[in-house]
Design a protein around this nucleic acid. Structure first.
Length: 426
DNA sequence: TCTGGGGTCCTAGGACCC
DNA sequence: TCTGGGGTCCTAGGACCC
C-alpha cells in the first residue's frame, strides 16, 4: 500500500436533475428529465427516469406523450442555475485540495494525498459536505491515473455498498484485474464507439484486455491518444492535472431555432446577436481572434441537408463585434438560398492572441482607435443583464420567431433576486 | 410541428517552398 | 516508360468528451 498522491474525480450525480431538485423538492423521488436547448433532447435523467427506460439524447417531441403519461417531469435547461451551483462546488472542493482541474460543469479532478485509508476518508468527508452545504449528491472515484479514476467513479455508482466512494488502491492486483475484466472496452474513458468497434474486431473486448495489449501496436493502429489510454489503465499517469483553467483556444456560439429562417434579413438578426455573444466571451478572456467561421445549416433530419460555411481571416486580430458582424454577413449573406429552411446558425472564433501583447506590438498602426463598442457593451450588460443592451437588432427585447424554445424552465434561484425560491411553512 | 451545444486533440492531405 | 524529396504551414474533418 502506497502513500503516493491519488487522483480523485468528483462527479455530481445526474447533475442537472439534482440542481433542479435543490430548489424544487417535489421532484425528489420522481422521474425527472432535463432537456437540451430548444427543449430538443433529453440530456439529464434522474435515476427513476433511467429505470423507466428513458434514453439519453431521446428527442423529447417523440417521447413526451408517453413519458408524461408515465409520470416523467421535464424541465428546460437552466444553465445560469447550473453554472452557479457548479462554481460553488469548485470553491468547496478547493478547501480539500491544493490542485483541482475543473473538467466539466459537473466534474473535477482533485489530488488527494495520504494512505489509501486517509484518502478514502477525505473523499467521504467531501461527499457529506457537498450534500450538506450545496445540496448536491456526488460520487468519487480514486486511482493513480485519471482513466482509472473515471473507471472507479463508475464503480462508485453501480455498487451501493461503496456508499459513493471507490478507491482502487483498496484492491489487490488480482481483484483489480477482475474489475477491469468486468468493464467493456467501450466504457473506458477515451474509447468511443468507433474505436471500440475496431478493438473488438481485434479481439479486445474488455478494459483488462486493452490494458494488457501491445502498446506499440495500439499506437500504430489507433494513434497516441489510445496508446495513452493503455498506459493509464496500467496505472501510469500520462494525463497531468491541468489546474489553471487555460483560456479557450476556440469560442463558438451556435443555436438551433424554434422556427427556421430563410431570409437575409433574419440572418442579419441572428448574426448580429451571435457575433456579439461570441465576441463578449472573447473579451472576457482578454483575447483577439484572427479567424472566424460562420455557417448556416438546414435540418439534418430533412432530405437535402445543406450547410453553407465560410471561413474568414481578419486583417488584424480583433474582438470588435461590429467588425465581426459586418464580415460575417458579407461572407455568409450571399450564400443563403431563399427557398431553404435554415434551422441552425453558428459563429466560431479561432487563432487567438492576447490583447495586451498585440497592443504592445501594434506601434505602426496608423488607424485611429475605433470606438470601443465591445467594452461599453460588456460593462453595461454585466451590471444590468444580458438582455439590457445590444447593437442593432440584439438590442430589442421583442421575441423573435427564431429564438429558442424553453417552455419548462425553472427560476434562476441563486443569481436573480426576483427569482429566489419561496419557502412555505407547513 | 418537434432531433443540443461547446469544447479538445490529433491526423491526413493540400499548398507551397527550396 | 521513366515526373524528386523533404520540410513547413494550414485547414478540414474525425474522434472523443461532457
Amino acid at each position: 500500500m502506497s502513500d503516493l498522491p491519488s487522483i480523485a474525480i468528483v462527479d455530481a450525480n445526474n447533475f442537472y436533475v439534482s440542481c433542479e431538485r435543490i430548489f424544487d423538492p417535489r421532484l425528489e423521488g420522481k422521474p425527472v428529465v432535463v432537456l437540451s436547448n430548444n427543449d430538443g433532447c433529453v440530456i439529464a435523467r434522474s435515476q427513476e427516469a433511467k429505470t423507466l427506460g428513458i434514453d439519453m439524447a431521446s428527442p423529447w417531441h417523440s417521447i413526451a406523450a408517453e413519458a408524461t403519461a408515465r409520470g416523467v417531469i421535464a424541465r428546460s435547461s437552466n444553465y445560469e442555475l447550473y453554472g452557479d451551483l457548479s462554481a460553488r462546488t469548485v470553491e468547496l472542493l478547493g478547501r480539500y485540495t491544493s490542485s483541482q482541474e475543473v473538467y466539466s460543469i459537473d466534474e473535477s479532478f482533485i489530488r488527494l494525498t495520504g494512505t489509501p485509508q486517509q484518502v478514502t476518508a477525505a473523499a467521504r468527508e467531501i461527499r457529506v459536505a457537498t450534500k450538506k452545504l450545496i445540496g448536491l449528491p456526488v460520487s468519487i472515484g480514486i486511482a493513480p491515473s485519471k482513466t482509472l479514476a473515471k473507471l472507479a467513479n463508475r464503480g462508485s455508482k453501480t455498487a451501493p455498498a461503496l456508499l459513493g466512494v471507490c478507491n482502487l488502491a483498496a484492491y489487490a492486483p488480482a481483484q483489480l484485474t477482475s474489475i477491469l475484466q468486468s468493464v467493456e472496452v467501450g466504457q473506458v474513458w477515451g474509447i468511443g464507439g468507433r474505436t471500440a468497434k475496431k478493438l473488438i474486431g481485434l479481439g479486445i473486448y474488455t478494459a483488462a484486455e486493452l490494458r494488457d495489449a501491445d502498446a506499440a501496436r495500439v499506437r500504430r493502429r489507433f494513434g497516441v491518444v489510445q496508446e495513452r489510454v493503455v498506459q493509464e489503465l496500467r496505472g501510469n499517469d500520462c494525463l497531468p492535472l491541468e489546474e489553471m483553467h487555460a483560456d479557450r483556444d476556440q469560442i463558438q456560439f451556435s443555436r438551433s431555432f424554434a422556427t427556421p429562417i430563410s431570409t437575409v434579413s433574419e440572418l442579419k438578426e441572428v448574426l448580429s446577436v451571435y457575433t456579439q455573444r461570441a465576441s463578449a466571451r472573447l473579451r472576457q478572456q482578454n483575447s483577439l481572434a484572427r479567424l472566424m467561421r460562420c455557417y448556416a445549416s438546414t435540418s439534418p433530419f430533412q432530405d437535402e441537408h445543406v450547410t453553407h460555411a465560410v471561413s474568414l481571416a481578419f486583417p488584424d486580430p480583433t474582438d470588435d463585434p461590429v467588425e465581426m458582424y459586418r464580415a460575417a454577413i458579407t461572407a455568409l449573406g450571399p450564400q443563403l438560398q431563399s427557398d431553404r429552411q435554415y434551422v441552425r446558425v453558428g459563429v466560431s472564433l479561432h487563432e487567438f492572441s492576447s490583447r495586451d501583447t498585440h497592443a504592445a506590438l501594434d506601434i505602426f498602426d496608423t488607424n485611429p482607435a475605433p470606438f470601443a463598442a465591445g467594452n461599453v457593451l460588456d460593462s453595461i450588460t454585466a451590471k444590468y443583464g444580458q438582455e439590457t443592451l445590444g447593437l442593432g437588432l440584439a438590442g430589442f427585447k421583442s421575441n423573435r420567431a427564431w429564438t429558442m424554445r424553453r417552455n419548462m424552465v425553472s427560476p434562476r434561484a441563486t443569481t436573480h433576486w426576483d427569482e429566489l425560491a419561496t419557502v412555505f411553512a407547513q
